[in-house]
Design a protein around this nucleic acid. Structure first.
Lengths: 188, 188
DNA sequence: CGTCACATTGAACCTCTTCAAGCGCCGTGG
DNA sequence: CCACGGCGCTTGAAGAGGTTCAATGTGACG
């Protein structure tokens, strides 16, 4: 366990194809994980927020790239240090749990991607609210482009949808990065 | 380990919300796994083919339903029988592997769902070819509706796309359920 | 104060959906 | 045996929703 390192906005943490020698514990800030597709487009597969552990997407080589979407403090952990401790049964169980949670997330993301633009954006807002342990007021730590690439939409559609939700009085946008959910339970 | 049971076409194997006391080993046939969405629509999350193990989607209660898409022979295995054998380290590792594989599948399905209709159908055909260890000629063990619900498209779009691929000489459809891939490697 | 990055808004276009109809196969029953 | 009905597949035409291209707005920072 090292002392936390600081990363600047948009700084790469690790890249696709690099050896996966470390795990990362995000102390503060927000991180995006993404694939780069054949056609050059970018597909975000996850956002990580304070407290999240990430970087276990592969055994040997990373299959995704990660960058800081905001300035971050990140604890870097040597993989070996963990693995040497075990054929550890508790560690194995923990890894299984973490993987299972990622699987659930991926599956519900699947469901989200089948819905319309409005449902995707609302789903995203809920996810973020839950992630940040907030109920009605959330802070978006990422750009519209990041959101769009996460939801499989265009920047324009995300922007339009947020505006629409505001005119429908479902949310407020005091600033472009601050969102207030007016009826958090019944936004569906 | 019980002797294989037979299931008729469209017969339910287990339903969402039921206790997950068993694992299932598919000997012959094809099975679909699906969620039922709020709006009543059905979202297929997986097809299982001969040799696949399924039913481990939950700890206590199943989160998905499964049905036979063709007549099936299925070996039903008591979950307890496996679990009692271990704090078994090998078993735990195996479960981790299986979960990791499911995670990969879910993630690549994510990528598929972001593409256009043609890419989705082609991706599906490739997946099926790989699953059945075929290279150029595959047998579709499911209806157009199943495929559509799996790809997040409508029946009509799937049908149209297959027809289009045939006119482009990318595939042949000797019968509606038999597909020949004309250039398996370069279908992208 | 100008610039740059990000966000927003508008209008034309395109893809997929929706609605509707027709076809072919197969099992059932007169 | 043939007629009928059901089911699944295909095809067509109109409509909706998102993308694309283009222009404008706005806040942060040198």
């Amino acid at each position: 366990m090292c002392a936390p390192t600081s990363y600047a906005r948009n700084e790469e943490i690790f890249g696709e194809g690099e050896p996966a020698d470390f795990l990362y514990k995000l102390e503060t800030g927000c991180v995006r994980a993404y694939h780069t597709l054949d056609n050059g487009r970018r597909q975000l597969v996850a956002f990580y927020v304070a407290g999240d552990l990430f970087g276990l997407d592969a055994r040997e080589l990373h299959t995704i790239s990660t960058e800081a979407t905001t300035p971050c403090m990140i604890r870097v952990i040597k993989r070996k240090a963990l693995m040497s401790r075990g054929g550890d049964l508790a560690m194995l169980k923990h890894l299984l749990d973490v993987t299972a949670v990622e699987l659930r997330r991926s599956q519900s993301h699947n469901l989200l991607l089948l819905q319309g633009a409005q449902e995707r954006v609302v789903g995203f807002l809920h996810e973020m609210a839950e992630r940040e342990h907030r109920q009605s007021e959330i802070e978006l730590h990422m750009t519209r482009r990041d959101i769009a690439d996460y939801l499989g939409l265009t920047v324009e559609t995300v922007s339009r949808t947020l505006s629409l939700l505001e005119t429908e009085a479902a949310i407020s946008l005091p600033t472009p990065w601050r969102v207030v959910l007016h009826d958090p339970s019944a936004l569906n």
